[in-house]
């Protein structure tokens, strides 16, 4: 049985913890759940009754950091689901580093540590024989990292291009179909809970840049940093620009791309309406250009509930791997 700590008890953390409690992944025991103010730890396994909506009201709730559970190796697998924090990547970066250095496997959906320190974390994982899986960091439920690892080993990824942020795609889609201004479309997205109250990370292209970095480093094997990405957001996109694009049978989309020379850029671009990556609403779409197989495009929801699918699949992979290769 893999003893699991789910760190982060927000939208994803609650769903993943409940799925594990309901036996979605055999071979795991949820022994700890943590949030920023404290944690619940029960070595014999947490029960559904012991895990309410408000973690701090749980009978075994202890105030303070759960880092000690990792330092003392009280768990075998850390599922790190705290929110993305720039520029430090903390506290997730320290949690992941601590876990891997002690041979604890890690599954995460937090973009920052993987985007900012992938090369270092991969090296720590290699040195201790632990696993570091992060399918949920990019493209929500779209299996991009696993696709590369399991299905495209016999090919080379030459370039990547895609829509990697559902919030900006929603805003641009509303501008395209309804003729809204950027400000109106943003306000609508905020009212619907699609955009954050502070939308900077999304609309200025940083969220896309982080995801692009993860793809460049993990899918194309590059070693790029955030400062290597040329970033432009969508806040200057006028209703006129969207209308002029539409007249030319195109749409304005925030596109992240790694070109064949290894250059990374995030920018609003013109996409032909019949291009497979020209998807609308909150959808994401990514085209991988492969040396032998040609272009491969994947489309799916890039955030929210579908991300749970990616996280659980990574947990499943850890359990399968440990079943055949115990520590």
């Amino acid at each position: 049985m893999q003893r699991v700590l789910v760190n982060g008890y927000g939208f994803l953390g609650k769903r993943v913890a409940r799925s594990l409690l309901h036996g979605m992944v055999p071979g795991v025991k949820l022994v700890a759940v943590a949030r920023s103010t404290g944690y619940v730890y029960r070595p014999e396994g947490i029960t559904a009754e012991g895990l309410g909506d408000d973690l701090s009201r749980s009978p075994n709730f202890v105030e303070g950091s759960a880092l000690g559970l990792l330092e003392d190796r009280k768990v075998d697998l850390l599922v790190e689901l705290t929110p993305t924090n720039l520029p430090s990547g903390e506290p997730a970066l320290t949690n992941i580093r601590t876990a891997l250095s002690r041979g604890i496997d890690v599954v995460t959906a937090n973009k920052a540590p993987i985007a900012l320190a992938y090369t270092e974390l991969k090296e720590v994982a290699r040195s201790t024989g632990s696993l570091l899986l992060f399918e949920g960091t990019v493209g929500g439920g779209i299996p991009l990292i696993s696709l590369r690892r399991f299905c495209l080993r016999g090919d080379e990824v030459l370039s990547i291009r895609g829509i990697l942020n559902g919030t900006t795609n929603y805003i641009l889609s509303r501008m395209h179909f309804e003729g809204l201004t950027f400000d109106l479309a943003l306000r609508e997205a905020q009212n619907l809970g699609i955009a954050e109250r502070d939308p900077t990370l999304d609309v200025e292209g940083y969220d896309t840049a982080l995801k692009l970095l993860i793809l460049a480093n993990a899918v194309m094997g590059l070693d790029r940093k955030l400062e290597d990405v040329r970033i432009a957001g969508i806040s200057r996109i006028s209703a006129d620009a969207v209308a002029l694009a539409k007249e030319a049978n195109m749409a304005v989309k925030l596109i992240g791309s790694v070109d064949s020379d290894g250059r990374l850029s995030v920018a609003p671009r013109l996409v032909k309406l019949n291009d497979p990556i020209c998807v609308h609403g909150t959808l994401n779409a990514v085209t991988l250009r492969l040396k032998t197989a040609g272009d491969l495009t994947l489309i799916g929801e890039g955030a929210g509930e579908p991300t749970v699918t990616s996280i659980l699949n990574d947990v499943w992979e850890v359990v399968t791997f440990r079943g055949s290769s115990p520590r």
């Binding site: 596109i255 920018a267 609003p268 032909k272």
Partner: peptide, 9 residues
């Protein structure tokens, strides 16, 4: 020159 230029993908 301070312009935002959108090019085709």
């Amino acid at each position: 020159l301070g312009y935002l230029l959108l090019t085709e993908v």
